[in-house]
Amino acid sequence: MERNLLRQSSRRRAARAWTWIGVLALLVIAVFIVSMNSGYTRLSPGEVFRTLFGGGNANQNLILFQFRLPRIVITVLLGAGLALSGCILQGITRNALADPGILGINSGAGLMVVLYVAFYPVTKLGSVFLLPCLALVGALATAALIYALARKRGEGLSPTRMVLVGIALASGISAAMIVLTIRLSPDQYQFVQTWLAGSIYGTNWKFVLALLPWLAVLIPYVLLKAKALNVLSLGDALATGLGARTERERLGLLAASVALAGACVAVGGGISFVGLIAPHLARQLVGSRHQVLIPAAALTGSLLVIAADTVSRSILQPSGVPTGIVVTVIGAPYFLYLLARTKSKA
């Protein structure tokens, strides 16, 4: 009897979780449609519909297919990638405040991008596909340094120490980037400052093609490792008792998290807090089982970034404001709230 009740309860929780995932998917689609209608040049829903099916004029085709759609697709991919990166970090560190931006991984990727911009123009086709690779190198180097400094012999990885080391490294890397900007030309400096603010500068299909393969490979890998994340979230002692190879699984998932963050930062700039907010909101909706948390976090991140980008393109026209600023306006107070709640529980 009790076993049947437990099964029914589990089925209800699973049904509720997948219902929320469906709702999130519908919200992403709805905001996607709204975003196609938003911008300096307004397109009515009818004009968007006609243009999508080949009935638009040359100007409408240019606006929708060459400017808006690539940017909107990139925001969806960026949101999913950054959210999954944060979800993985929170799972393997068991730290609610873990996020690739806060830990300095985004800064490490950004440093490589700034170095590249200083010596090579970003407008060439080759550079578009090389940027994610260089950002990955910077992010991996930063993550390796954080891992080495936060790990104590005999104690394993300390989640609190990891956050503190990441914040310190992020500050140091940010200072190095400021020094590097001194040697930049005015055009390069303008690009770097816009990029650091989280402006999604990649507004053509080349940037979509540069980012898509990374997510196409890494997202299925993360989904396959959902059970491993569930076990790692229980702590090293219990995970080892259950037969998990904790160090190997943690390193593989950490590499996936870093790769997702690095690729997204290379294309979207310094957008922070997505990896912090999205997993938390998704966890409130679907629970902590990573089989449902991973897709829910990805959809929540996509919804957050595409909504922020739509707002950023609609205010202070024609230039708008960087998407990262809109996300920060939401994310900074939420981070302080989580920090206060964590302290109250301690």
Score class of each variant (00 low, 15 high):
Leu164Ser: 13
Pro186Ala: 06
Asp187Val: 00
Met162Val: 08
Leu157Ala: 04
Arg161Ile: 15
Leu169Met: 15
Ala170Gln: 12
Ile173Phe: 01
Leu184Arg: 05
Arg183Phe: 11
Ser158His: 03
Val179Pro: 14
Thr181Leu: 00
Ala176Lys: 13
Asp187Pro: 01
Ser158Lys: 05
Val165Pro: 05
Gly156Tyr: 01
Leu169Phe: 15
Leu169Asp: 12
Leu180Trp: 05
Ser185Glu: 01
Ala176Arg: 07
Ile167Arg: 05
Asp187Ala: 11
Arg183Glu: 15
Pro159Val: 13
Ala170Gly: 15
Leu169Lys: 10
Ile173Met: 01
Gly156Ala: 00
Gly166Ile: 03
Ser158Arg: 07
Ser171Gly: 11
Ile178Phe: 08
Ala168His: 00
Ile182His: 13
Ser174Thr: 11
Ile167Gly: 13
Gly166Thr: 07
Ala170Ile: 06
Gln188Arg: 06
Asp187Lys: 15
Ala170Phe: 04
Leu169Trp: 08
Glu155Ser: 05
Met177Lys: 14
Ile182Asp: 09
Ala168Val: 02
Ile173Trp: 03
Ala168Ser: 06
Val163Asp: 09
Leu164Asn: 09
Gln188Asn: 01
Val165Leu: 03
Arg161Gly: 04
Gly172Val: 06
Glu155Thr: 12
Ala175Met: 11
Pro186Met: 08
Glu155Trp: 03
Ser174Phe: 12
Ile167Lys: 11
Leu169Gln: 06
Ile167His: 12
Gly156Cys: 01
Thr181Trp: 02
Gln188Gly: 11
Ala168Gln: 00
Met177Phe: 05
Ser174Met: 08
Gln188Tyr: 01
Thr181His: 00
Val163Arg: 07
Arg183Leu: 06
Leu157Asp: 05
Arg161Pro: 00
Met162Arg: 02
Leu164Pro: 05
